[in-house]
Amino acid sequence: MKILVCISVVQDTTTKITFTDNDTQFNKAGVQFIVNPYDELAVTRALEIAEANNGTVTIVHVGEADSEPSIRKALSMGANEAIRINANPIDAQFVAEEIAKIATGYDLILTGRESIDYNGGAVCGLLGAMLNIPSINVVTKIDYDGGLFTFDRDIDGGRETVSCAGPVIASAQKDLCEPRIPNMRGIMAARTKPLQIIEASVSNQAVSYLSYTLPAAKSGVKLIDPSNAAELINILKNEVKVI
């Protein structure tokens, strides 16, 4: 069983987002970077499946050298090896096109549901189509038995169970598992695990980021007396006209 897990490196969830260079670049100054939370779930479940089926887990990441601590974290969780494709990960299509070049020969490929920076949520479907394999979005459960993968996935207004033989790609949603915390042995071992660096080669970029804006600030809260809370209903009905 060979499993590939695609990880993004993103700003910590508490980050206050600002931009530089005339609002054309995300301001990385003082920002703590982490493995994308959904991708941590993907790594953890991949390791559990690999351990139960005598398999291996490879990590792939499109990013620059500054993301190596996060790649090492995935290795310290237990992954066998990692590949870094050296480029600024501009958007989902660019990332998927780069990963597609190294993604053959795996039984299972996992991504996170979306990255919490650019929120494309598209790499799973893009890679699935590029590799001509089925893609299963937002999975909350993955089992492997007798050559068949079974997934629970979120759908609009519910959940469904699907099954499929490998190779298949799926994107991890919360509830899939509890993220594994690296232990000291894992951290030590990760230092010497293979990390291969490949140069990016996609040139026909599908999407370009031109600029950024922040949401307009609220003009200020109108407080309602808690002893006369019914006034809120009156406002929502007759002023805002939303209910």
Partner: peptide
Amino acid sequence: VFSGKAFAIVN
């Protein structure tokens, strides 16, 4: 983008 914390103009 940034999970609702910002917007991007993309071409």
